[in-house]
C-alpha cells in the first residue's frame, strides 16, 4: 500500500486529487489543507509520494519541498508539484528545488495517473534497493561475525598449541587475557581496545612453539645459555604473527615481542624503557606475571593473593608500568571473579 500525501489549500482540489489517487489502486491518501501541518506530519511519517500545490498561504509549494527535503531520509521521496500552465518560472525553480515532476491545473486524469504511477514505480524501486541493501548489510554483518569468531577460535587454539608444550594451562591464557582487559578498562581505553587486548593477549607466548623441549620443559633452573634461548620466544612470537592484515594478530605480534620488557629498561628483548614499551606489552606484563605467581606449577606452589599484589606494588616503576598496576588493583573485584570463572581444572568456553 502506497502512502500518498496530498497538500492543497483548496478543498475541491484535495477532494479531486484524493479521488484520483484512490482510482490508482493500492494507495492510501493523507490530506492536508495547510503545508505547515503537513510538514509536521512528515516528521514522524514517511510518505511514498507527495503531491503538493504551488500556491498556498504561509508556505508555498517550493518552500514546502525545500523544508521536506531537509528532513532526514526524505531526500529521495518523489514529489509532484501542481502548478498552473502559465507558471514556467515556478516550474524551473521547483525542478532545481527538488520536485520530481509536475501536474498542471486543471488536473487531467490521464496525465495525473501516468505521472503518479511513474513516481510510485520510482518509489517502489527505491524501497526495493533499500531493502536489498539492508538485507545485504545484515548478511555481511553475519558473515563477518562468523569469520571473527573463527579468527578468535583459531587464535585461542594456536595459543593453546604453544601452551600444550608448557606446564601452563588453557585457563592461564583465559585469566591473563581477562586481567589484561581489566587493566585496559582501568586505563580508560575504548571498548574496541579493551576487546582487542582480550583477543590479542593469549598470543603472548606463542613463540614458545619454537623453543626446544629440553629447555622449555626443564624442571630445574635454566643455565644462562638456556635462558638466552628461552628469551628468544618473544622474537619468535613476533616472527610468527607479524605483517598480518588482521588487527588482532598485529596486536598479538606487539604483545609477543614486548611482554617481557620491563618499565626500568632491564627487560628483553630490546631493553625498552617506560613508554617506549608498547602499551599492550606493559598491560600484558602485569596480567601475565600476576597469573603466573598465583598459579600452581609442578615446580612451585601458588603464591597467596596478598604476596602477589605486594610483588606488583613493589615492581611499580621497575618491572611494571605504575599506571597498569594501579588499574589492575582498581579492578580487584573483577580479578577475583575471573579467578573463579577460569580455574585450572576446568576449561570454560571462550
Amino acid at each position: 500500500m502506497h502512502n500518498v500525501l496530498i497538500i492543497d489549500d483548496s478543498d475541491i482540489n484535495l477532494t479531486l486529487i484524493k479521488a484520483l489517487v484512490l482510482k490508482l489502486g493500492d494507495c492510501s491518501p493523507t490530506l492536508f489543507d495547510h503545508p505547515l501541518a503537513a510538514l509536521e506530519w512528515c516528521r514522524s511519517n514517511v510518505p511514498d509520494l507527495v503531491i503538493v500545490d504551488y500556491m498556498m498561504p504561509d508556505m508555498d509549494g517550493l518552500k514546502f519541498i525545500s523544508a521536506f527535503r531537509a528532513l532526514h531520509g526524505r531526500n529521495e521521496i518523489p514529489v509532484l508539484m501542481i502548478t498552473a500552465n502559465d507558471q514556467k518560472d515556478v516550474r524551473y525553480d521547483a525542478l532545481l528545488g527538488g520536485a520530481n515532476d509536475f501536474l498542471t491545473k486543471p488536473i487531467d486524469r490521464v496525465e495525473f495517473s501516468a505521472r503518479a504511477r511513474n513516481m510510485l514505480s520510482l518509489r517502489t524501486g527505491q524501497k526495493y534497493l533499500a531493502d536489498r541493501a539492508e538485507h545485504l548489510s545484515v548478511l555481511v554483518d553475519e558473515r563477518t561475525a562468523e569469520i571473527r569468531e573463527r579468527e578468535k577460535e583459531l587464535i585461542f587454539r594456536i595459543s593453546r598449541a604453544a601452551e600444550f608444550r608448557d606446564p601452563e594451562t588453557g585457563a592461564h591464557i583465559q585469566r591473563m587475557a581477562h586481567y589484561s582487559q581489566i587493566i585496559a578498562l582501568g586505563l580508560d581505553l575504548s571498548l574496541a581496545q579493551q576487546k582487542l587486548i582480550l583477543e590479542a593477549a593469549p598470543m603472548h607466548d606463542v613463540g614458545k612453539i619454537g623453543i626446544p623441549d629440553y629447555i622449555l620443559l626443564k624442571p630445574g633452573k635454566l643455565t644462562p645459555e638456556e635462558f638466552e634461548v628461552m628469551k628468544g620466544h618473544a622474537r619468535l612470537g613476533q616472527e610468527l604473527l607479524k605483517d598480518s592484515r588482521s588487527e588482532v594478530i598485529q596486536a598479538g605480534a606487539e604483545v609477543a615481542i614486548s611482554h617481557h620488557e620491563k618499565y626500568d629498561g632491564t627487560g628483553y628483548p630490546h631493553g625498552l624503557k617506560g613508554h617506549q614499551i608498547p602499551l599492550f606489552g606493559r598491560i600484558v606484563a602485569v596480567a601475565d606475571v600476576f597469573d603466573a605467581l598465583t598459579s600452581e606449577r609442578p615446580y612451585k606452589r601458588a603464591w597467596s593473593l596478598d604476596d602477589a599484589c605486594k610483588y606488583l606494588e613493589d615492581g611499580r616503576g621497575k618491572h611494571f608500568d605504575p599506571m597498569c598496576v594501579e588499574a589492575f588493583l582498581a579492578g580487584w573485584e573483577h580479578v577475583l571473579d575471573i579467578r573463579q570463572r577460569f580455574r585450572d581444572e576446568e576449561m570454560p568456553q571462550i
Partner: peptide, 20 residues
C-alpha cells in the same frame, strides 16, 4: 474527458463547487 469519464468524481466536484 479530463476526469477520465468518471461521473462519480464529476458529481462530487459539482457538489463541492456549489457548496463552496
Amino acid at each position: 474527458e479530463r476526469l477520465g469519464g468518471d461521473e462519480e468524481i464529476f458529481t462530487m466536484m459539482v457538489d463541492m463547487f456549489v457548496q463552496d
